[in-house]
Amino acid sequence: MPAVVKVLALAVLCSLATACSLFKFPGVHRIEVQQGNIVNQEMVDQLKPGMTRRQVRFVLGTPLLEDTFNPNRWDYVNRVRDRDGEETQKRFTVYFNGDQLIATSGDWQPASWPG
């Protein structure tokens, strides 16, 4: 009987040791993970109607998504996972007519934008 108890105790200990990811140990350093484009209000405020694609790319950077089927739309997406594991996502989209910026949408709006 004691051999069976030892085997069961060993199995329980092994199960607990492999399940460490279920527990959050105090003092363990967790980093903030950021993915995508970094866009902020100051950058968006620099946009003006009629800017060229090149000017928009200079201000906001290369878009994360350039839709092959809709070349007049660029999407900038930013995801941040904080140290607690909570994830937030922000999105900003610019629209063109040919080579001219005509509209924006998303979590920020340019301060000087008409309308």
Rank of each mutant, 00 (worst) to 15 (best):
P114W: 06
P71Y: 11
D84Q: 13
A19T: 12
R91S: 07
F92I: 03
F25W: 06
Q35A: 12
P26A: 01
Q46N: 07
R79C: 01
V44D: 00
D82N: 14
S15R: 11
D45W: 02
Y76W: 12
P110G: 01
W74Q: 10
F58K: 11
K6H: 05
S105Y: 04
G98K: 06
P26Q: 07
H29A: 11
Q34S: 09
G106D: 02
M1E: 14
F69D: 13
S112K: 13
V7A: 15
Q55D: 08
R83N: 11
Y76P: 12
N70V: 07
Q34I: 15
F58D: 12
C20L: 12
R91W: 08
Q41K: 02
N78R: 14
G98Y: 03
E66Q: 13
V56N: 09
P63V: 05
E42I: 00
Q35V: 14
P114S: 03
P110Y: 02
I31C: 08
C20P: 00
Q89R: 14
S15Y: 15
L8P: 04
V39I: 14
F96Y: 07
E42G: 01
G115N: 04
Q55R: 07
R73Y: 04
P63Q: 11
L22V: 03
W113Y: 00
A17P: 05
S105Q: 11
V80H: 03
V4T: 15
S112Y: 02
Q55F: 01
A111K: 14
V44T: 00
Q35R: 15
E32R: 10
L8W: 15
R83K: 15
D99A: 06
E66N: 04
F23E: 02
P49D: 02
R81S: 09
E32A: 05
N40F: 00
L22F: 09
L8D: 12
T93K: 10
C20K: 13
K6Q: 07
D84C: 10
G61A: 04
G115C: 03
S21H: 15
G36V: 06
G61Y: 06
L64R: 13
A9Q: 10
D45H: 07
R91E: 04
G98T: 03
K6D: 06
P114R: 05
Y95V: 05
A3D: 12
C14K: 14
C20G: 14
R53V: 06
M51D: 12
L60D: 08
V56S: 08
I38K: 10
I31N: 08
E87C: 06
